[in-house]
Design a protein around this nucleic acid. Structure first.
Lengths: 154, 154
DNA sequence: TTACGTGCAAAATTTTTGCAGGGAT
DNA sequence: ATCCCTGCAAAAATTTTGCACGTAA
């Protein structure tokens, strides 16, 4: 977990007048240890239990809600049917997701041109954008050429 | 429901060797009667029951799965926490969603430029796009000017 | 000390499934 | 007649909540 994330967490705790407890610490550690790793509630539960097996689902859900509300965690749709969460919006607030239909890998990307156009369209519709996200489901070219998919990340 | 939709449904039924039954008909009627209206599973349940109160959830979920699998219904994330479904991808296969944070209204929009750029980025990452979607959460300018939000759809 | 936080277990939601009877082709 | 389909009810999966005890500040 980076210091920046640690600071944001502390700021959120302070802002809401909450307390930093060990159960919360464990869950946040599990959530932010790898910024590239998205997860579902259940996956985070397993990760947290890897750090402290006593972690309870009740506290997990309460902490997820806290982090989402505070903007440190974003709820995203990765097409799994259940909500996934993305811990990387702190460091890359404007990234999008490409989901590989062949291996389910998720590639994050950013693009200034598209971002500008999104703002443009939003304004034209009479709104001011608060958050923007793109999901692209796609097939891996390499798979078709070589029969393999995993690994390569453009 | 348009004839085009009716035809697509029939084609799906035929392709899979299924049968067109009254319970399915009711659910599909509820789903496609208003292409602009997104819905959750539960909302569709209520709509279907308005047509035929005997509609069961089991059949509803089975029919939703059938339509999603067949590409007639798209699962989308409207930020409600539960999956929503969009019946309008048959008529507008490439539209995106803007969600008003003030009134929760969903505005659909399409844009050729962005669509091209998405394909471009996807190719650059080494993939071929299968489906693309954008979600923008935004605040209504009119609300800030006049204190009202609903109604206006750019 | 004193709220706030926690875990447990129960409850509430949401979705899936087994099964026996019913219906489309 | 055949095999798919349906509804019911039970089960499964996921998330929320009440409560008594624990603990950070």
């Amino acid at each position: 977990m980076t210091d920046e994330v640690r600071d944001k967490i502390q700021a959120l705790i302070d802002l809401k007048g909450l307390r930093m407890t060990r159960p919360r610490e464990v869950i946040m550690e599990a959530a932010f240890s790898d910024p590239g790793a998205h997860f579902t509630a259940d996956e985070l539960y397993e990760r947290a239990r890897a750090i402290d097996p006593k972690t309870s689902r009740a506290t997990l859900y309460r902490t997820i809600a806290l982090l989402v509300e505070g903007g440190l965690l974003h709820e995203i749709d990765l097409g799994k049917g259940v909500a996934s969460y993305d811990p990387n919006f702190i460091e890359s607030p404007n990234h999008n997701h490409l989901i590989c239909l062949d291996c389910s890998r998720v590639v994050e990307f950013e693009d200034q041109h598209i971002s500008v156009m999104e703002d443009c369209i939003t304004r034209r519709l009479g709104f001011t954008a608060a958050s923007k996200s793109i999901q692209i489901k796609a097939n891996c070219d390499q798979l078709r050429r070589t029969g393999e998919c995993s690994e390569r990340v453009g």
